[in-house]
Simulated scan of single mutants.
Amino acid sequence: MTVFVSRSGWGARSARSVSTNITPANGGVTVHYVGSGSVAKQNHDQCAAQVRSIQDYHMDQKGWSDIAYTYLACVHDHVFVGRGPGVRTAANGTTSGNQNWYAVCGLVGDADAIPENLVKAYHSAIARLRGAGGAANRINGHRDHLSTSCPGERLYALVKDGSLDPRRAAVPPWPGIYLKYPPITRHSSVTTWQEQMRTRGYSLTVDGAYGEESKAICVRFQRSKGLAADGIVGQDTWDASWR
């Protein structure tokens, strides 16, 4: 399961200013990389320092108010919170790009392989931006906004073939039981579903018990998907949770 690292978790500096003037429902999510060469950290303990160095460069050399990206994803299936959902980016290179598109940077260079754990991190980041951030379903590369090599040939190939779209992730088989309340449903599949809702940006306790809180989240999710809002996780709601 992807781990989201808060700003305090990676030691972020405070932003000088924050703009919520962003309309991602008109765009989606733009994919970036760090740059040329091999930059992926084999030791995950080094990733937070790498994110801090990117923030320092953006604030001290570029003069921006904060790190430019919405999220940064590493090859260890961790997502570092940059500006976060609902905040205008500074990474996409054009006014319309920053207005309408979130920015997710993979902590890789053009010489690095793209491991499955990085793809998983992208899936989780993009799913959360669609859920909590209101992003449209479109995904593009930085080079689609202006002339640049970013996000490199390997990542851009995954953009073009749809591999970074979380809807392409495998849907675990429906467990064959209905998750509902009352009474409380306790089953291993409840944990699986709760973890997926957390990945999508919903705030709930992952405890394997489908109770009042889980039902309320289910109703919100069903309404967002145009499903019958009965608060019961049947096969349609289960499958939609991964789409």
Rank of each mutant, 00 (worst) to 15 (best):
G9T: 11
W10F: 07
W10S: 04
G11Q: 07
A12V: 06
R13K: 11
R13M: 14
S14T: 15
A15N: 07
A15V: 13
A15Y: 09
A15I: 08
S17L: 13
V18C: 07
T20K: 08
T20M: 10
T20P: 03
N21R: 12
N21T: 12
N21V: 11
N21H: 09
I22H: 00
I22L: 04
T23A: 09
P24A: 12
N26D: 14
N26E: 15
G27Y: 07
G28M: 04
G28F: 10
G28W: 06
G28K: 04
V29M: 05
V29W: 03
H32L: 09
Y33P: 05
G35T: 06
S36R: 11
G37Y: 08
V39G: 01
A40D: 03
A40P: 01
A40S: 10
K41W: 14
Q42M: 15
Q42T: 15
H44N: 12
H44I: 14
D45M: 13
D45C: 07
Q46C: 11
Q46V: 14
Q46Y: 13
C47T: 12
C47N: 12
A48F: 04
A48M: 05
A48E: 06
A49Y: 14
A49E: 13
Q50W: 08
V51C: 03
R52W: 15
S53P: 06
I54R: 06
Y57I: 05
Y57N: 07
Y57F: 13
Y57Q: 09
Y57E: 08
Y57P: 02
M59V: 15
M59I: 15
D60N: 11
G63D: 04
W64S: 01
S65W: 08
D66S: 05
I67C: 01
I67M: 06
A68I: 09
A68L: 10
Y69K: 02
Y69C: 04
Y69W: 12
T70L: 01
T70C: 03
L72I: 10
A73S: 10
C74W: 02
C74P: 03
C74G: 06
V75S: 11
D77E: 13
D77I: 09
H78E: 12
F80G: 01
F80W: 03
V81W: 03
V81Q: 04
G82Q: 01
R83Y: 04
G84T: 01
G84C: 03
G84D: 00
P85E: 08
G86E: 03
G86W: 05
G86N: 02
G86S: 04
V87W: 00
R88K: 09
A90L: 14
A91C: 07
A91M: 06
G93C: 06
G93K: 00
